[in-house]
Amino acid sequence: MPPAHPHCSHHGARHCTTQDAGQAELLDLDAEVVAAHIAEITAWLPLDAPPRQIVDLGCGTGAGTFALLGRLPGAQVTAVDSSAGHLQRLSEKARAQGVAERVRTVQADLDEADWPDLGFPDLVWASASMHHMAHPERALRRVHDLLTPGGLFAVVELAGFPRFLPENAPEDRPGLEDRCHAAGDRFHAEHVPHRGADWGPMLTAAGFTVEGERAVTVNIEGAGSQTVGAYALHSMRRLRHSAAHALSPEDLDALDRLLDADSPQCILHRSDLTVRTERTVWTARRTDQTRDRPLNP
């Protein structure tokens, strides 16, 4: 899943608004395409009892929020994100689905040392958000102190950007997607070093007892699906941003033709798209019984 809470403070309001809107559309497409896999993950969570209070950290436009609301009809969700635009979109969806009274939105930068009051949740969910934290160890400790004793923390992370094209595509530059991913991986290794991390040891170091780890493979045939086509287009445009500097001129030209909605070679016109990715979920429990929690770990 794409990042759920970008930091735009140095770009200016207009840039952030545009970036938010584009990212919100991508998040919505991701939620629609992988809805069954998100539901599979929520059904797998080792819940001792149905949680009453849930916090969704880095909620984006609400993929996890609404999956959890559907899975746990007695629960309330506090949805937290740094993007006001994402939270507004989530609130609009909640009203449209008739669950607005079960959702509270909180705008917050989770990289700040002090977090707002998020209540006493029984379950904290963080999907594709932890790897964006500037200080993930500190954030994990905050989540530990936030949870009620016995509460569960679910961390869902992606191996990387999804893949869409066959290995021999496009015809004039076979293997282009692999080269884009290799360049994007080098970029993210420098700028988002915790993407692809093993969160198990970090959860243990933060005081959790890790109870489960599961990899979920996504392989969705996209032939004839406008949603998959749009998802591929938006995702590859995002990948271009991080990979373009390392691509050859020939590769960049071929990629731009794939991403040009007016080009006959546009990815939207391909009938051989598949969505291929992998998500890993870790579940960890707060097992100590003290309810005292420091304000600043």
Rank of each mutant, 00 (worst) to 15 (best):
A63N: 07
L72S: 03
H15F: 14
L110R: 00
R95K: 13
S82P: 07
A96S: 15
L110G: 08
S91W: 09
G62I: 09
A126G: 08
H132Y: 00
A94V: 13
T42M: 05
Q19A: 15
P116K: 03
A100Q: 11
A108W: 01
E137Q: 15
A84R: 10
A75K: 07
Q88I: 14
S82A: 12
A67Q: 06
Q107K: 09
A39K: 01
A139S: 11
V106H: 02
G62H: 00
P73I: 07
L110H: 01
V124A: 05
E112K: 03
M133S: 08
D28A: 14
S83E: 11
A84P: 04
E40S: 12
V143C: 07
I54E: 03
G60E: 12
P51T: 00
R104V: 03
W125R: 01
E101L: 07
A31R: 11
G119T: 01
E32G: 10
D109C: 03
T65N: 01
P46M: 03
T61M: 09
W44E: 13
T18H: 14
R141V: 13
L118Y: 02
P121T: 07
G98E: 07
L29Y: 13
E92L: 15
L123P: 08
H86C: 08
H86P: 08
T65D: 06
E137F: 11
G22S: 09
A108R: 04
L118D: 09
S129K: 03
L26Y: 13
H131F: 02
Q19S: 15
E40Q: 12
A21R: 12
L68M: 09
W44T: 14
K93G: 15
Q88L: 15
L69V: 06
S129F: 02
D30W: 13
V77F: 02
R71Q: 13
R102S: 02
H132K: 06
P136E: 10
G98K: 14
T42R: 04
D111K: 06
A96R: 14
A96E: 15
Q76F: 10
E25H: 15
H131C: 04
G70W: 00
L68Y: 07
H144N: 09
A139P: 05
D114W: 12
D56M: 05
H132I: 00
A36T: 10
R95D: 14
G98H: 11
P136R: 08
G12E: 09
L87Q: 03
